[in-house]
Simulated assay, not measured.
Amino acid sequence: MPIWYDPLGLALGVALDQFLADPRSTAHPVALFGQASAKLEKSLYKDKKARGVVHVVVCVGGVTALGVLAQRVPSRAARTAVTAVATWAVLGGTTLAREGAYMADALERDDLERARARLPHLCGRDPAHLEAPELARATVESLAENTSDAVVAPLFWGAVAGVPGLLAYRAINTLDAMIGHRSPRYERFGWAAARLDDVANYLPARVTGLLTALTGPNPGRALTVLRRDGHRHPSPNAGRCEAAFAGALGVTLGGTNVYSGRTEHRPTMGEGPKPDVRDIRRAVRLTRAVSLAAAGVAVLTAWTLRRARAPH
Rank of each mutant, 00 (worst) to 15 (best):
Y5Q: 01
P7H: 04
G13M: 06
Q18G: 12
L20V: 15
D22I: 12
P23Y: 08
P23L: 10
A27Y: 05
A27F: 09
A27V: 08
S43V: 13
K49A: 14
K49T: 12
V56P: 00
G67T: 06
V68P: 01
V68W: 15
R72Y: 03
S75R: 15
A77V: 13
A89F: 01
A89H: 04
A97F: 02
G100I: 11
A104I: 04
L107Y: 06
A117D: 06
R125G: 02
E131I: 00
R137Y: 01
L143R: 09
A144H: 11
A144Y: 14
N146E: 10
D149E: 14
P154K: 03
V160D: 07
A161G: 14
V163D: 10
Y169P: 09
M178V: 02
M178L: 12
E187Y: 12
G190A: 09
A194C: 10
N201C: 14
Y202D: 14
Y202S: 09
V207H: 00
A213R: 10
G216P: 04
G216Y: 06
L223A: 11
V225P: 02
R227V: 05
R228G: 04
D229E: 13
V251R: 13
P267E: 11
P267K: 13
G270Q: 15
G272V: 07
D279I: 12
V284N: 13
R285M: 08
L286Y: 10
S291Q: 15
A310E: 14
A310C: 09
